[in-house]
């Protein structure tokens, strides 16, 4: 049953997470930034599920479920905000939203 070692899951998870963060950093489009966060969340899910199969527990899967639910909320609210920003400002790229800059 347990052929794939935990290390494989973890390395995959880290690589995916790093790609997500990198996407958040380099992406200009707000929607694309939000998509990159989905990558990072999925990476965390992989780590949970992989650790679960390694340890023979189920709590990780439950957390993965919660994360999926929260990702749905995050996507809904985040996309709502993006739509609102676009409607108010007619912009959708992050370098045009620098009002908080010093």
């Amino acid at each position: 049953m347990k052929i794939v070692p935990l290390e494989a899951y973890l390395i995959l998870s880290v690589l995916l997470f790093g790609l997500g963060v990198f996407g958040m950093i380099v992406r200009r489009n707000l929607v694309a930034i939000l998509m990159s966060t989905e990558l990072a969340l999925n990476a965390v899910n992989i780590a949970f599920v992989g650790a679960d199969s390694h340890l023979g527990l189920l709590d990780g899967q439950i957390f993965a479920l919660f994360i999926i639910a929260l990702a749905a909320v995050e996507a809904a609210v985040g996309l709502g905000i993006i739509v609102a920003i676009f409607r108010l400002r007619k912009v959708e790229s992050s370098d045009e939203l620098t009002d908080m800059g010093g």
Binding site: M24, I25, V26, D95, L97, D99, M100, G101, G102
Partner: peptide, 20 residues
């Protein structure tokens, strides 16, 4: 302040970079 002001560009991307 003027030294570190450059870091506060108000861009989400850079904040994530600092987070990383």
């Amino acid at each position: 302040g003027s030294l570190f002001k450059g870091l506060q560009q108000g861009r989400v991307n850079l904040y994530v970079l600092f987070l990383l």
